[in-house]
Design a protein around this nucleic acid. Structure first.
Length: 796
DNA sequence: GTCAGGACTTAGGACAGACGGA
DNA sequence: TCCGTCTGTCCTAAGTCCTGAC
């Protein structure tokens, strides 16, 4: 979109500050237009539409079943209400029952398109000539940073072709296979558990544990002190799985109650181990680093279509306690160890199959080039599939990322029509259309997620389509208060004014017989919404609006970058734009524990620098009083540097100086001792301390004269130079302070990584002469290599 | 049309190593 | 050089959306 285009689109201001309504034509309908549909369809002769039958249905008849908890508290929901939440798996159910046909179809039906080959791992290994073993292939996936590219047939080119491969210039479409050849080393398994032999303390008695039981007790001990460890559900789930293992492996155990369990002995051991790791020698640390590097070099890369690409998460998740977020009903359950037999390897059909760990075999080996994963397994808690993918900076992820942003950019061209369409549909006679339009308005304006259905065995979080009446409160004439838990149980709380017709619609959707636990949009699902969106723009789904709005708002906000300003000021403007997006998308983080302390320190640092500047200014005024005509700032007072603050600052400095003198004295003497030389006499230290004491006394009785922080014979120019340097430092500290405060609860990285088109940032850097490294770290620069070529005039 | 599963993106927190000021 | 803070990376949970079976 050109900048002039964006001027005409009020989106940014709308997002930050929705306009008063009725101005865009949406809220201008008469009240008669807004008679609740369900009532009018019964009592009035509404125009005949194909949806009449739908409108005729009482709302309650279509109300989604509330979630279990809510339903229990509310008897108003008709028994016939169709349930839209996912069916929960029973606690012992590892796999949702599927028909035999559909279960086998995973392999069979895909056969022509997806060449799935199920092999006995031993046979598979036998089928691969020994010459193809990993060791022999090693040079292909070279560990050194200099890249050796191999052609698709496996032959190795010695040039640096890989570095120059610019896939984004290829114009490759999204259809067809994802790769032609794929070679990799498989996955890395966590080390086997090594028992420590320490007991659980139960009612004061030591209980020696079977290693399998001990391992799980150790998982819990490691979490002591965390929020998880005091979470009742977490404790219950953990204890249930823990006692099941006790029953199995220690038949006569006496452990009955969690509250009598004491894991502190194990915890102390873990703390010891941690301390040992921390105090390792440099050589030991180096050895560990090398070990890690070797693993990264081996598993961290694959050969995709002859190019060396980075693998993302090649480590199999270690066993542990499931840490579900928010009020997750399964949090604390035991996540069991994954065995090679549970792992499916996906690899090129001509490639050597990586060796499973000794004594084991892979669950399956397939050659499916329609997908991008290298390995997968199922976890035992939710029966979810876990994948090993390529890293974020890989060509596959890059292509997908670029397509995502291009799609969002394409929406710029369609969005006005789409908005006109949904604004018209606010008053549709068809309830489903009216709900769809209203939901779309919320998704577009407030960047809400689609809100898929969730099961009872998951945390109770919602998105737009799954909002319940209780999540939205209305205040006439058009104020709406949203309060719900979104993804990751992050609270979304916002009060805003909305389009008048949207407000009326929301009131209608909440109308009795619905209760607060009923679905707000009971005739809408993400699927129907997305199906509709596809008719407006190919490939359009609800989540595209988030990307579109994030990037668009960001670009608009960047206009606040000062044309003339320091780099720090420009970066501040960038981060502020980033923050607007993060706020829009509700990307939150918990306030860092050290926040208050850090802010106090920054404030002190700021005042200390100002104090230094004040001393220099006073000195300058005393030796060159006429200078203030040329430099009026010299005569300006320093904010916050009050006599009271100066006194406490100086006294604090005395305390710090004392501490420093003592430490230096001890350190120097230790060195002298090591060198077998005589120690510095205590009297030297006392002399220093007395000097500090005298300074302290003079501060207290008001006779202290501060030392000017510059050489006595410094010229006025030198003093001015120093003042200017301090001024710059003050500016930087102030910027830092503002940024920290503004960002204390806002996570900027999520939007930067996932929602903001990187080309906007690259263009901004070029336009403002800000080095890209200042806003994109190495990982981001790698992830967004495809965006680096745009010029300074590029717009989203 | 509904449901379940699969494949992928999005997300916040933990933690280790780097960094920078005293 | 030390020590506290910051930053980047890793980890893995939790979403979205699509496909295919029924």
């Amino acid at each position: 979109m050109s900048s002039s285009d964006s001027d005409s689109s009020p989106l940014s201001s709308r997002v930050a500050r929705p306009p008063s309504n009725g101005k865009n034509g949406a809220g201008s309908g008469s009240d008669s237009d807004n008679v609740p549909l369900s009532i009018r369809s019964k009592n009035q002769s509404a125009p005949a539409t194909e949806s009449d039958s739908e409108s005729d249905q009482p709302l309650s008849g279509r109300v989604k079943a509330p979630r279990k908890k809510a339903a229990a508290a509310n008897g108003s929901v008709p028994a016939a209400a169709p349930k839209r939440t996912k069916k929960a798996l029973s606690p012992n159910e590892t796999k949702r029952p599927r028909t035999a046909a559909s279960a086998t179809a995973v392999v069979a039906a895909a056969a022509p398109k997806r060449p799935v080959v199920k092999r006995e791992p031993k046979a598979a290994k036998a089928a691969v000539p020994k010459a193809n073993a990993l060791v022999d292939r090693k040079p292909l996936i070279k560990a050194e940073s200099s890249v050796v590219a191999a052609s698709a047939d496996g032959s190795v080119d010695s040039d640096n072709e890989n570095d120059e491969f610019k896939w984004w210039l290829d114009n490759k479409d999204n259809t067809g296979p994802k790769w032609s050849t794929l070679e990799h080393f498989g996955v890395m398994f966590p080390p086997e558990y090594e028992p420590h032999g320490l007991p659980l303390i139960y009612r004061g008695q030591k209980i020696a544990m079977h290693p399998i039981v001990e391992e799980v007790a150790t998982f819990f001990a490691a979490l002591l002190g965390s929020d998880n460890a005091v979470n009742k559900v977490f404790q219950e789930n953990f204890f249930k799985d823990f006692t099941a293992l006790l029953d199995k492996h220690m038949a006569n155990h006496t452990v009955k109650l969690f509250s009598h369990c004491d894991f502190s002995v194990i915890r102390a051991h873990l703390d010891d181990e941690k301390a040992k790791r921390k105090s390792m020698t440099k050589a030991q640390k180096e050895a560990l680093k090398k070990e890690k590097q070797d693993i990264d070099d081996k598993y961290g890369f694959c050969m995709l279509d002859g190019r060396r690409e980075k693998v993302g998460n090649f480590r199999i998740e270690p066993p542990g306690l499931f840490r579900g977020r928010g009020a997750h009903p399964k949090t604390g359950m035991l996540k069991t160890r994954v065995l090679p037999e549970q792992v499916t390897i996906n690899i090129g059909s001509g490639a050597a199959i990586p060796d499973p760990p000794p004594g084991h075999s892979w669950g399956r080996v397939i050659h499916d080039n329609t997908v991008t994963w290298l390995a997968m397994w199922k976890e035992n808690i939710n029966n979810n599939t876990k994948y090993v993918f390529l890293a974020a900076g890989s060509s596959l992820k890059g292509q997908s990322d670029m397509r995502k942003f291009d799609k969002a950019r394409n929406l710029v061209r369609h969005v006005d029509d789409i908005r006109a369409q949904y604004t018209k549909d606010f008053k549709s006679e068809v309830m489903a259309e009216r709900q769809r339009a209203t939901a779309l308005y919320l998704i577009d304006r407030y960047a809400l997620r689609a809100g898929n259905e969730k099961g009872d065995d998951e945390a109770d979080t919602v998105g737009c389509c799954s909002l319940r009446c209780e999540h939205v409160s209305l205040e006439p004439p058009n104020m709406v208060h949203f309060d719900f838990l979104g993804k990751d149980s992050i609270r979304y709380e916002r009060t805003t004014d909305v389009d008048k017709q949207v407000w009326k619609n929301l009131r209608l959707f909440q109308k009795a017989p619905k209760s607060k636990s009923d679905m707000l949009f009971d005739r809408l699902s993400p699927t129907t919404l997305n199906t509709f969106l596809q008719t407006l723009m190919p490939g359009l789904t609800a989540k595209v609006f988030r990307t579109f709005n994030a990037s668009f708002v960001f670009q608009q906000q960047l206009r606040n970058t000062p044309e003339v300003g320091t780099e720090a000021e420009k970066i501040l403007a960038y981060n502020r734009a980033n923050r607007e997006v993060a706020v829009l998308c509700n990307h939150q983080r918990s306030v860092p524990k050290s926040f208050e302390g850090v802010m106090t320190k920054i404030e002190d640092k700021l005042l200390a620098v100002r104090y230094q500047r004040m001393l220099l200014k006073d000195h300058l005024m005393s030796i060159a009083p006429t200078l203030k005509k040329r430099r009026p700032d010299i005569a300006e007072k320093e904010d916050g540097v009050t006599p009271k603050w100066i006194k406490s600052h100086l006294l604090e400095t005395c305390e710090l100086d004392r501490e420093k003198a003592r430490k230096k004295f001890e350190r120097d003497n230790e060195k002298l001792k090591e060198a077998n030389e005589p120690a510095i006499p205590e009297s030297k230290l006392e002399e220093q301390l007395e000097e500090i004491n005298a300074r302290e006394k003079s501060i207290n009785d008001g006779t202290y004269e501060a030392e000017v922080p510059i050489a006595k014979n410094a010229t006025t120019d030198k003093i001015l130079e120093k003042i200017d340097k301090l001024t710059e430092r003050v500016g930087n500290i102030e910027v830092d302070k503002i940024e920290r405060d503004e960002n204390k609860t806002t996570a900027l990285s999520t939007s930067k990584i996932n929602y903001i088109d990187p080309r906007i940032s690259v263009a901004w850097c070029k336009k403002n002469n800000v080095p890209l490294e200042k806003i994109f770290n190495r990982a981001l620069r790698e992830k967004f290599t495809w965006a680096m070529d745009v010029d300074s005039e590029w717009t989203f």
